[in-house]
Simulated assay, not measured.
Amino acid sequence: MKPQQPTSFIASAQRVVNIELAAIAALNDKFDDNFTQACNLLLNCEGKVVVCGMGKSGHVGNKIAATLASTGTPAFFMHPGEANHGDLGMLGKKDILLAISNSGETVELLNLLPVVKRLNVPVIAMTNRINSTLGKHADVVLDIGVEQEACSLGLAPTTSTTVTLVLGDALAVALLDANGFTSDDFALSHPGGSLGRKLLLTVADIMLRGDEIPLIHEHATVSDALLEISKKGLGLTGIVNQQGELSGVFSDGDLRRLLDARVDIHGTRVHDVMTRGCKTSRQEDLAVAALNLMENHKISALLVVDDKMHPVGAFNMHMLLKAGVL
């Protein structure tokens, strides 16, 4: 095999990207009444969406089923080869079959149609050939036709599988929007890993409580505030009034500014130099929302307050990092 120049590899890669980008752009013109009809069928499905495809279409179908399931549309993948030997029992009368075949003539898929029709299960076909056997027997046909595959031989499914994947994403997101699917709903199907931690953890799950909260009275001195900051290790302390309400905070940054101004830290009341109108969090806030607040305002720690502005907790960036939110 003759060695290739680096420029040849890059040229091939750019050619693939350009061909596939053009095919994805052309997909915009195919969102018509058929797409709307498919969305309505899926939206009103009382059972599950059963995605089916052979070969590369099957690999893409697996991903489409997973995306649908994680965005509020119950779905799973059924291998057509296995379905011909018993797994067709997965398909129920209230389900919808989403059949993917570039040619529309995949034998393993076509063999399923008589039973599918007998069950009166609606069929949504994703195919390159609308007038294929699969297309003719489907209730709705979604066109995944492309002008050319990105493969230089024009044989390996490349552009066609990319377009199918994008169309599957379009279906899933359209249904997500129509269902009013929220981040809380998303969290319920993603409890594991960093994604689950970001979506499920609340401030109450990570915050310090009780005596661990850095707090001093507003009549205390700056020196007292410095001792509390050092003792609790969050880089700030809350300042409370006689009713126990949060009046403000005093942080490491505030201390540096006072030292630069040569202020007497032993004789100055912290009430006179604290930061008022400080940002706070609530126990029920999502930890990721608190993180966004801290990043937007360049804050390294936050106090948590209740409805009466009484401090009930505190946390910092390190605690968010330890909890896997960052």
Rank of each mutant, 00 (worst) to 15 (best):
K198W: 03
L88T: 01
E46T: 08
N40V: 02
Q37P: 02
K198Y: 03
G235L: 13
A83F: 05
L291H: 02
S101D: 04
L188D: 07
M309E: 07
T202N: 15
T106S: 15
Q37Y: 00
S57E: 06
N111W: 00
P122R: 12
V325Q: 08
N84A: 07
K48W: 07
L236F: 15
T36Y: 04
S8A: 15
C52R: 01
G89A: 06
L27G: 04
S101Y: 01
V60K: 00
I229H: 00
I144N: 03
V115A: 12
A125N: 05
A138T: 03
N111L: 13
F31Q: 08
S8F: 14
G47V: 08
L302A: 01
R276H: 14
V222S: 02
L234S: 02
G86K: 10
L155D: 06
A172V: 04
V203R: 00
G235R: 10
G233P: 09
G104P: 09
K308Y: 12
A172W: 03
T164L: 09
L41R: 01
A156W: 06
G86A: 13
L258T: 02
D272V: 00
A287C: 04
E82H: 08
L293G: 00
S281W: 00
L21V: 14
C52S: 15
A23S: 11
S247F: 02
M309K: 05
S281D: 13
E105G: 06
V107S: 11
L21Q: 15
G248I: 09
A220K: 14
T71Q: 07
S189F: 14
S230D: 09
S230Y: 03
L165Q: 08
L110Q: 03
A23E: 09
A204N: 15
G193C: 09
G235S: 13
N241L: 07
V312P: 11
G248C: 08
V263A: 06
V325C: 14
T280P: 09
D29R: 12
C45K: 05
N28V: 06
V166S: 09
V116W: 00
K56E: 13
M319P: 03
N241F: 09
I10L: 15
D169F: 10
P191S: 06
Q243Y: 13
T67D: 08
E218P: 01
M54V: 14
N62Y: 01
A225G: 03
L88E: 02
L153A: 14
V50D: 10
T7A: 13
I24V: 15
F35A: 03
K94W: 02
T67G: 04
H79M: 07
D254K: 08
T159S: 14
V173S: 05
E245K: 14
G104L: 04
A11E: 12
A287G: 06
T221Q: 10
R118Y: 01
S70Q: 10
L167S: 03
D143C: 07
K93E: 15
H297G: 02
N292E: 14
M1A: 10
G47H: 13
A26M: 05
L98F: 07
G238S: 09
A99G: 11
K63A: 11
D139W: 04
L258F: 11
L199A: 04
P114C: 05
V115H: 01
N18L: 14
L175T: 02
G104W: 01
